[in-house]
Design a protein around this nucleic acid. Structure first.
Length: 362
RNA sequence: GCUGGGAUGGCGGAGUGGACAAUCGCAACAGUCUGUAAAACUGUCGCCCGAACGGGCUACCUAGGUUCGAAUCCUGGUCCCAGCA
């Protein structure tokens, strides 16, 4: 199978951002909308898709790309993050063991996600980059707990890689990346990193929760992973992040990012706008190169200006602040769509700037 | 004109003698969101001082009255609604 990830992007080493289409849809958008924002690819989630669709759908479709009518690249996440968000949250029902993750879904059935099943399903989805099943280390983990999750992450990674090697051919061999866990413990992070490198992945992901206990982004761990992985290693910031965080991580060598922020924020009335007057004038080195725009403020009710003059998205090119405020006020879903389109274009402009800087050695 | 019902904070709408500066919803304002159980959630919301506990002031159409105490009871007035002439 043709590797859309490579072909759509051209050069894999360029910095890329993938919005999250967890359930094979970027909420409120269709695939043509996504394409129109110059977004190179999306991320889908193994756990959610397996739970909703099972295996049989993909006997009729040639992977997730055909199913969702999407021409761009696709990353699949393993479902490891769901350990945290479902099982380890207070109401979630499920269990993590060395075998895998057992989750009771709301549909009254139990799903057992093993490293092998996770990779198997991702291969069935025919995605361009697969992520190993990992055991999420929560931010509150003690050293012992963190160590246990690191050991489990490593042994699962070995199983994932073995299964991957046995079930891929040169016709279809996506990228596969390992995920570095270990919480806030630097020695565990380093150890996890080194062990994963030995297994021989195409890349490594900054896993866990990247925000430290004081609410700041943990750049120290990001740096540690970057410096402890080989030059050829594809670095992936899982679930990262804010625009300024992405800029900093690209400088460290990270190349791939996915995050819910632009799409969720859009639905929650937070739009990203560059402080520059035009796209050409955007300076990512400036302290505050962007700010938030809250679209339904009273002050915008009669404002005929576009949301941002440094944007060329559907919203900014065709509609006023006044009209968007109106759409939000009456609760029309087009407000969410237009805002999501805008935020995705904001991110794709960001990545285009970073790609340009990278190609020109900046 | 008669009879009945009603007038509450930006709006809607509870309360019907003390626990009322007044439930709740909307609006407004401030904030949160990072491999999406999130088109969600949190806070403020009469005025003044205070970070906060709290304190002071003015308030439930209006003018009086009853009462230790009234948005709540009584009387007059103004306006609104329904039915009848």
């Amino acid at each position: 199978m043709k590797n859309y990830f490579k072909s759509s992007v051209g050069n894999i080493l360029l910095p890329l951002f993938f919005p999250d289409a967890t359930q094979s849809v970027v909420k409120t958008l269709d695939s043509l909308d996504i394409e129109a924002t110059s977004t190179p690819g999306v991320l889908v989630n193994t756990y959610h898709l397996y739970r909703e669709l099972g295996n049989t759908i993909f006997e009729k479709f040639d992977g997730i790309r055909e199913f969702m009518g999407w021409k761009g690249a696709v990353i699949s996440d393993s479902g490891g993050f769901q350990i945290m968000s479902i099982i380890k949250s207070k109401s979630g029902k499920g269990k993590v063991s060395d075998v895998g993750i057992a989750i009771h879904t709301s549909k009254n059935k139990k799903i057992l996600l093993t490293p092998e099943k996770s990779i198997g399903y991702q291969l069935l989805l025919r995605t361009d980059l697969v992520v190993v099943l990992d055991d999420f280390t929560p931010m509150s983990a003690t050293y012992e707990e963190a160590k246990e999750s690191v050991e489990r992450t490593i042994s699962w990674a070995i199983r994932c890689k073995k299964y991957f090697d046995e079930h891929t051919t040169k016709d279809y061999k996506p990228y596969i990346i390992g995920v570095v866990q270990g919480g806030k413990y630097l020695d565990l992070r380093k150890y996890c990193c080194e062990e994963l490198v030995k297994i021989g992945f195409d890349g490594l992901g900054y896993g866990g929760w990247p925000i430290n206990e004081s609410g700041k982004f943990d750049y120290e761990i990001a740096e540690l992973i970057a410096t402890n992985s080989p030059k050829s290693c594809l670095l992936y910031g899982l679930g990262i992040g804010k625009p300024d965080e992405i800029v900093k991580l690209v400088k460290m060598g990270y190349r791939i990012f996915d995050c819910v922020l632009p799409t969720r924020d859009a639905r929650h009335k937070r739009l990203y706008v560059y402080t520059a007057k035009s796209i050409d004038e955007i300076n990512l080195d400036s302290d505050k190169f962007y700010r938030y725009y809250v679209p339904d403020k009273q002050m915008y009710f009669a404002d005929k200006n576009p949301i941002s003059s440094a944007c060329d998205c559907l919203l900014c090119k065709h509609y006023s602040r006044s009209y968007l405020a109106h759409l939000f006020r009456i609760g029309d879903m087009s407000a969410l769509r237009l805002s999501t389109i805008h935020n995705l274009r904001f991110y794709s402009i960001l990545m285009e700037k970073l790609q340009y800087n990278y190609l020109h050695g900046k």
